[in-house]
Every structure is written in C-alpha cells, then in structure tokens.
Design a protein around this nucleic acid. Sequence first.
DNA 1: ACAGAAAGTTCAAGATAGCGAACTCATATA
DNA 2: TATATGAGTTCGCTATCTTGAACTTTCTGT
Lengths: 106, 106
Amino acid sequence: MANVLGAKIKELRKQKGLTLEQLAEKIGSGKSYIWEIENKGVKRPSAEKLAAIAKELDVTTDYLLDNEQTEISEGLTKEMYFRKLGQLDEDDQKRIMDMIDAWSKK
Amino acid sequence: MANVLGAKIKELRKQKGLTLEQLAEKIGSGKSYIWEIENKGVKRPSAEKLAAIAKELDVTTDYLLDNEQTEISEGLTKEMYFRKLGQLDEDDQKRIMDMIDAWSKK
DNA sequence: ACAGAAAGTTCAAGATAGCGAACTCATATA
DNA sequence: TATATGAGTTCGCTATCTTGAACTTTCTGT
C-alpha cells in the first residue's frame, strides 16, 4: 500500500498514452524523475512539480495527494455540483457556503 | 516582487490572527520553516506542506503557487468551498448536494 | 522601568529532490 | 542475425528542504 501517489500517476499517464519522456518534457523535468516518483516513491515532491503533473493529467493536486481517494469518478460528480453551485443566485450560494463552513467544524 | 508565495502566506496568516508557531503546529512543522517560507523564500516547498498550509488558510494550492494571481477571486472562493465539500463525510456531502439540486429548480 | 512571556529570527546539519548521463531491455526493421 | 530505436532503469551529484535549538525583538502586566 505504499506509494499511492506513484501508482496514481503511473495509471493516469498510461491512460493518456504518454511515455515517461513525454510527460517529463511537458512538465519540464527529467524522465528519470518521473520514473522515481512512480516506482521508487519520492517522499516529498515539490508543489511546483506535482501541480504541473496534476495539470497535465487533468486531476487536482489534492486528488494526487489524498491517499484515501483513489477513484476519480466520485470527484467528477462533485465537480458537477460545483458548477451548479455557481448558477444559483448569490444569496443561495452564500447559504450553501455557510452550511459547508458550519459542517466543516466537526 | 520576489517571493509572492511568502507574501501571500504571511498576509493570510495574519488575517486569521495566527502566529508562526500556531500555523506551524497546525501543519506539523517548525515555526522557523514557516518564517523562512514567508521571509527568506523557499524555492520549491513540498506539495505536502503547501497543501497543508493552503488548507489551513482556506485557499487552494494553485492560488498560492500562481504568481500572477494575488487577489482572492470569486472563482477561487468557490473552488475552495468545492474542496471543503469534498472533505465532509458522505452524508453531509449528500445533504449539500440535495440542497443545491433543490434550489436549482426555482 | 523591569521581568517574564510571546513572537519572531538565525543558523548549522541531516535528509531529500531532481537532474544528466549512461545503462538495460524490448520491439521493430532489414 | 545484426542494428536501430524507443522505453524504462540506475546512480552519483548538487541544490534545496526542513528541522531543532538558541538567539533577539516585541509585547504585557505590575
């Protein structure tokens, strides 16, 4: 169960049909580094690199870092609601946000 | 205009009335490190630390990293709530989503 | 003003990130 | 088979992170 991060990146990279070198080039790093993240497990990758990787693989940094969350489908429905939220009137938006705030403190 | 990241963190931390030590403790690091991020400028902070800081300061990691974006926009606020929503337990998430659904049909 | 506490600052040292260059392994092409 | 090409792997090296402990400055109460 170690190196969840690496597993996620490897899977997403392959889904996109990218080689180590291609992904590395897109985010401006060496392919050896991507390999080490995926296989050896880098303990504390920099926010810069990870954000770049996340962007290229169309996921959020938070998703990559969260060791509990290994499925993206769930996240996608949330994103849908996020969009819906934006369509409500200001007042309703504020009510929702207040509610989230309230429930966050538990 | 160097060290935009540090400036943002310092400002947000003060807005919340937190001391270096308080913020440091919340994210599990030494206060000296927070100070160096804010004042000396750490070049490539780890994703883990930065995500923890962002969470504590109620902003996204992406906002902290983006040197162009220095204002907390409306979009960012929604993004932040989107993330908060994902951190609630399933039941609460469902309640919020139901509420959004209900209010969408008005 | 003074003492003590709280906040901020400095720094040396050990741990890790991240790169380049060279290597292996597989697959393709002649 | 031989050669080439692309993908993955190993490793040493430097730069940077991150910490703990000691230090200085600022605040607070008396």
